[in-house]
Design a protein around this nucleic acid. Sequence first.
DNA 1: TTGCGTGCAAAGGTTTTGCATGGCA
DNA 2: TGCCATGCAAAACCTTTGCACGCAA
Lengths: 145, 145
Amino acid sequence: MARSSAYQTKQKSQLLQFLEENADRHLTAAEVQIALAGQGTPIGSATVYRQLEKLEAQGIVRRYLLDDRGGSCWQYIGNAEQAAHCRTHFHLKCTVCGQLMHLDCDHLNEIADHVAAEHNFRIDVSRTIFYGVCGTCAEKEEPKS
Amino acid sequence: MARSSAYQTKQKSQLLQFLEENADRHLTAAEVQIALAGQGTPIGSATVYRQLEKLEAQGIVRRYLLDDRGGSCWQYIGNAEQAAHCRTHFHLKCTVCGQLMHLDCDHLNEIADHVAAEHNFRIDVSRTIFYGVCGTCAEKEEPKS
DNA sequence: TTGCGTGCAAAGGTTTTGCATGGCA
DNA sequence: TGCCATGCAAAACCTTTGCACGCAA
């Protein structure tokens, strides 16, 4: 494994901790920056991006693209157990509320095998996100009928 | 239907024609601009974006986000038959060569039904893309073994 | 003639890079 | 003390917007 971090700094540890505590959320670089500043650790945006870049290379966080503007967001996925776990299932993202959900289902896990065998395409499960509308938002959208 | 186009211009028709002729590709705004310029129709980037925006609103093209940088690309999907067709199946995108493939398969089409029934999530098939590596690129990556 | 569509340039937002400084080991 | 990490500012990108002009109807 690459021991890319040689020094431990306040910014680095605070950033990682914040990501870990919000592992269920998608965080933009700006959100991370503001949050750390708010808890007493001012951090430059350049540092945020540099750290996120490193963490992504190490497999500790994952980068996603927002579907509206040309921005990105990141999510903590751990580097061992959780990463391996998330590598075995798909993710659902609600285009209304933006929530990201894990989709554990054997029935769906065989999709990758099927596509590889029948369609000659090796799906990267960890990078594939199903977009749609979650049950909660669907109810709000169509209160009647 | 909104009759948003009142005038017919060279740029507009050429842009649409080019998109239609490359309906199997993902095109960036820059690619469209360069291609039209190359075939004798110089067009400003602002116009490209404005036209693509209108076409997207009309459902004639679809906008995707690139997974590397923070850029976008567009694909012609027609406004009737083809749109309906692509709405019924998933797409595969090779992260190596960037090619987009249509995935016609009854086995996969039931995925949306399954997720809706079992996981209370309404997948928007037209916005969901499977990322992975196509057979051709997989061979190139691993010539041995 | 009317007013939509265009082009240029400037602005906007996000992300990256250069360079000097600061802080961990 | 050595060297990585940080911060600031500038640059780089993609995209949007303002404004005047051109052209289709």
